[in-house]
Design a protein around this nucleic acid. Structure first.
Lengths: 408, 408
DNA sequence: TGGTATTTCTTCGTCAATCGAACGAACTCG
DNA sequence: CGAGTTCGTTCGATTGACGAAGAAATACCA
């Protein structure tokens, strides 16, 4: 019944909020733009644009950055975004590690710290570890609390839109009684946004990676678990119960091994890190007493090891089944592969594309680019920070006030 | 890079447009509501609400419908939507037929007309046929041109968001040189909206069927072709190239028959109408010289025919593979099955649900309702009309002005 | 070199839409 | 029947965008 309309009414103040948010976005996107150009593009009157820019300048969000080239008259004053006026905190709670990054408003990492930790079974310890790492980051750069906009947290669990702090009891049973959002909010007293790790990888790619342009995009995280995140109309899409993109348990081989989830031949049992290293041990032999790692596999593939190549070919074939379904069902503009193994690049993309071609309509294929991530291992933590940025660029009031940091 | 923000600036007039659109939506949705109640819910001041309602009344879109119950003081005046103030035209260009409906603003069909026609290979003839049927409908109710808001057209082809009038050259090669949107616009001189048939089935279900409430929903059309449409955040989701939901060619049986698309074991070759009747001929024998139809199959299933039941069981099993993938990838709140065969209801849903359970995480399953359509064969044509309604409820200016029809 | 046209940006008065307070009307409850 | 409540309207105040006019800066041209 809902007709999908904005649910917010507007008064004079709301009008200003909307217009100024729009300007802020435009300045952020364009990096440098004159008032006159803004007025032309937005169809706002020059006087209004000036007034709003003055507001934003007052708030320390934008600043003049010199004159541009003349178009036959007075030279325009270029306005730029203050990329470093505020900081963002991104936290990644991985399966076995905690990563924290401190970024500026352009996604550049100022500091990062990382620690191994068994996150799965130890909520209290993980949160304490995260707290330490965050303090480490903030102290390292002497970042005043005032200049931090908020905190994004990536968790290795689907997140229900209605209860964003709660983990899935099936995937992280030990976290049953923890509310992650609440914990960070009370511990650090700032806005906190929580989302699934693959969803934030997708957001990261959309803002800083392959997706520049805001197109619909799907990110696939290839690691211990296999998960996907969708960006639709510039936003993370979570589905009705928050489990959109949980592709790890799509069955792709009816004769495959039994999975913990009860099904047979799940994607994760065939191309998850554990399966890959297992298979590598069979084909490549043990490396030291611990057996080959994913890194060894990548190395092997680079140096032309036939066994490594074979394993990655097989991975591409299986993954293609899931990606083929994805193209037919969702038809995204871009599919990005992330996770350590994706660094082999074409070596994985070739068999993947071949497999997809056998399963997707050529029409969907033609419209979709399939690529590997260029953002590296920090992608997800940065995506968490980006979630805060995205929210703040929409709602100016999230930026702390009275901040007169004149950096950059 | 785009942060997914509204791209429209607001001035005083825009403010009014937005607020009055919001009010119009609320009145449409609630069917009857007092000014005071609107003011409470929207947080608009009572004076503003009164002013806007007066506007809408002037335009003939809403009207007073008597007094409501008192809450301890003066009784409120209930405002209602003028469901029959305007008409909508919905056109369905099916694979082998053309259907036209004329509806009111509540999705009720005033007139309909239908004709068999080989749409695939004959664009000119099909369009002419549609034109005749539309005139028939308009004349039957003596509907003045003035009171028609616009026209929605459902086509059996993916529709590219950037060129909504163009058919896919792979699916409807004969329509290569036709622009459907343009043709209807010039022929009838009114706003025209074109979309894929399954997408409009989904919209229909979202507005008038299982989806009342605006949740994310996927509709699956089971007919000669197999297609799906997604509603996301209340809107049809088309994907990057307009082929989202083209699930007919998902391979579900690697040993299945070769499909025209070049792949093997496509869903459509196994559970499309042709495959079903083929199989019915094998198992149930010929009925007359033409062999059994889908209708015969439905009949058979109802009367307990074992062969019919077997065919439908198999259909559910195959469909479950695709639906399982859908739940894992998109996690919609509701999946609706449409098309003639869906009228067997639980008989199809039971094996489908069983098949899905073997392929989807229990979490996704738990959040998703799988049901059959209750809208019948007009669902898609009504969905086409609904596309116009949806647009007009968002943008009041689409409603023709100076219309003073005082019906209902 | 100087004048004119152009572009940029600001100033200031006007306009439109919302808000809030005050008021009359209509109703419930005791 | 009167006190208290709710509904809807009226009217002046406020706010934010607009438009016209003007000042500053620059290109272009004679």
């Amino acid at each position: 019944m809902r007709a999908g309309t904005a649910v917010l009414t507007v008064d004079a103040a709301g009008m200003r909020a909307q217009n100024s948010g729009l300007l802020l976005n435009m300045i952020w996107r364009e990096r440098q733009i004159s008032r006159a150009e803004i007025a032309r593009r937005t169809e706002l009157s020059p006087s209004t644009v000036s007034a709003i820019v003055a507001d934003l300048e007052q708030a320390g969000l934008v600043r003049s950055i010199g004159a541009g080239v003349s178009r036959g008259g007075r030279r325009p004053t270029l306005i730029g975004f203050c990329d470093e006026a505020f900081s963002l905190v991104g936290v990644e709670l991985g399966a076995s590690h905690v990563t924290v990054v401190l970024t500026d408003l352009r996604g550049r990492v100022r500091t990062q710290s990382k620690a191994s930790h068994a996150v799965r079974g130890d909520p209290e310890g993980s949160l304490q570890k995260a707290k330490e790492l965050i303090h480490e980051c903030l102290d390292a750069e002497r970042v005043p609390r005032r200049s931090v906009v908020g905190m994004g947290v990536a968790v290795p669990s689907p997140v229900h839109p209605a209860a964003p702090g709660k983990m899935s009891p099936l995937i992280l049973p030990a976290w049953k009684n923890v509310d992650v959002k609440e914990w960070f909010e009370t511990t650090f007293d700032m806005p906190v946004f929580v989302d699934n790790d693959a969803n934030l990888g997708a957001l990261s790619e959309c803002f800083w990676g392959a997706g520049s342009g805001g197109e619909d995009l799907t990110y696939i995280k290839l690691a211990t678990g296999i998960g996907a995140g969708h960006i639709i109309h510039g936003d993370v899409y979570r589905g009705a119960g928050g489990t959109a993109g949980e592709i790890g348990h799509i069955p792709v081989d009816s004769n495959g091994p039994l999975c913990v989830c009860g099904l047979r031949g799940c994607l994760v049992t065939l191309i998850g890190s554990t399966a890959l290293t297992e298979r590598a041990r069979e084909l490549m032999g043990t490396r030291g007493r611990k057996g080959p790692t994913v890194r060894d596999l990548v190395e092997g593939a680079r140096t032309g090891d036939a066994a490594a190549k074979q394993i990655i070919d097989g991975m591409g074939a299986y993954l293609g089944i899931a990606v083929g379904g994805l193209l037919n069902l969702l038809n995204p503009a871009i599919v990005v592969l992330g996770g350590e193994i994706s660094s082999v690049g074409e070596m994985l993309l070739d068999p993947l594309r071949a497999s997809v071609r056998q399963r997707a309509l050529s029409v969907s294929m033609a419209e979709t680019r399939i690529v590997t991530s260029v953002l590296g291992e920090r992608a997800i933590a940065v995506g968490a920070a980006t979630l805060v940025l995205q929210a703040a660029l929409r709602d100016r009031s999230l930026f702390p006030t009275q901040n007169v940091v004149r950096t950059a």
